[in-house]
Design a protein around this nucleic acid. Structure first.
Lengths: 248, 248
DNA sequence: ATGCTTCTTTGATACAGATCAAGGCGATCC
DNA sequence: GGATCGCCTTGATCTGTATCAAAGAAGCAT
């Protein structure tokens, strides 16, 4: 159950450069070499909690493979997902110690980590890394705030449509696919995880998925494989026609 | 209706140094002088929209006096407040152009602004400003994510209690007052604005305020003046016993 | 096969909060 | 004084989602 550590790239990591570039899109070769020197890989099993809220985090890094979530929990067990980590997403809070919420692997996860102390040292020497981090954090803030609108004001049906269109969009971006025409993807979340993200119950999620299917907005094969014949129709259902591209 | 500009500190601005320090807590005198050179004041009337979503923002700054809100709106008019700006709070997105949501003055507001271009130049020359901004942004992100839990999982009563305890806490911090014993403050928001923040209707807000009053958790004088005899009891109602201090 | 377990769907019912509606209170203006 | 306006409260009713309950479908171990 303890995470496996290795200093070699997992075979599934296609081009770890991409991870480095996620941390700093303007690094030169020397800086990338520096990053290489302090990086290592970690694997986690599905269901494992990578980091507990309040724990000290001694690394920052990015997801190479798999899905993890940021989750907040109340004493009585109610939980709310506050972030979704897909491959290439960054985790970590340079300059901070304790993690503010649980990070949980929803599938098997491989992370590319950088030890925090040397990473912070590098940040001081390399101002554009700090600027890149500020940019990323602003993006996350935008995404969180857009999600507040979803949680506070949208109906169950709109919430589902919003989540599906985010995942579809992310998926297309990762695979460099266009978003016109039919889009098809594997849902990385259970109905329960979707409910945790949307502030709903899993039954309501299931019902609304069925409703969207009956309405012809989506097709569902094998519970988890989703096809969206028309992204515009889905975004119409989500209530955010047009723009809506901020969400992570 | 157009904002009033002036280059002199409004008489209500007690010690603008504090605003500069909010932007950078480690600035030396030379840097503060630099900040002084690019700063100006702006006043807005209650109800005025300081910045429209999508507009270019040519400044960053902080609130000196009054209350403003960050608000998102859907096409059909549903709105969700995604942030609350109290005196000393920072507004702006160095490195970004368009504002992501409306900023609306809820009372008359005075802001201390810095022109964006020179501010960004200064950021490049002065790395610890970028670091300070990263810290502030991380704080905002934490607050936004904690608010997601409120919006997604808390009951109406818990939402109200959460909001009141944030405002009480912020108020006490600004006035350097202790949080034990009875706490008393002026509510800066109408019932409708509270509803927008909490994802409720104004009627529900009113009812739950009455309920908390009847339960003796709060006292209400003149609709807007709130006394909390026991902060612990209020936080108990909010569902976050203990910690819960992240929220802005 | 058979029986587990985990995930999902669907139905019946309950309830929190929304909606619709009316009236109260205080400020400001004439 | 009375009229008007913005804000707040309270009541009656409706509705979307939660809750409780049962059963289907797929995967996996035996």
């Amino acid at each position: 159950m303890t995470p496996e550590l290795s200093s070699t790239a997992p075979k599934s990591c296609e081009g770890c450069q991409i991870r480095h570039r996620a941390v700093c899109s303007r690094c030169d070769d020397a800086e990338l070499t520096q990053l290489d020197a302090i990086k290592y890989y970690r694997s986690f099993e599905a269901g494992q909690t990578l980091i507990w809220a309040g724990d000290d985090m001694d690394f920052v890094g990015s997801v190479v493979n798999g899905i993890a979530t940021l989750t907040q929990t109340m004493e009585d067990g109610r939980t709310q997902m506050v972030g979704l980590l897909l491959p290439s997403d960054f985790v970590g809070r340079p300059g901070r110690n304790a993690a503010p919420y649980d990070v949980i692997a929803k599938t098997d996860v491989v992370m590319c980590c950088f030890r925090k102390k040397p990473f912070e040292t590098m940040m001081v020497d390399t101002p554009h890394i700090a600027q890149r981090l500020l940019e990323m954090t602003l993006d996350e803030l935008d995404a969180a705030r857009e999600w507040m609108l979803v949680l506070g004001r949208k109906t169950a049906r709109e919430k589902i449509a919003s989540l599906l269109s985010i995942i579809a969009r992310r998926n297309a971006t990762l695979k460099l696919m266009p978003l016109n025409g039919a889009v098809s993807f594997e849902l990385p979340l259970t109905r329960e995880a979707m409910a945790d993200y949307l502030g709903l119950t899993l039954e309501t999620v299931s019902r609304q998925m069925s409703a969207l299917k009956k309405a012809g907005v989506i097709q569902i094969e094998n519970k988890r494989h989703i096809t969206v014949p028309d992204m515009d129709a889905l975004m119409e259902e989500a209530g955010d026609d047009g723009d809506g591209g901020l969400l992570v």
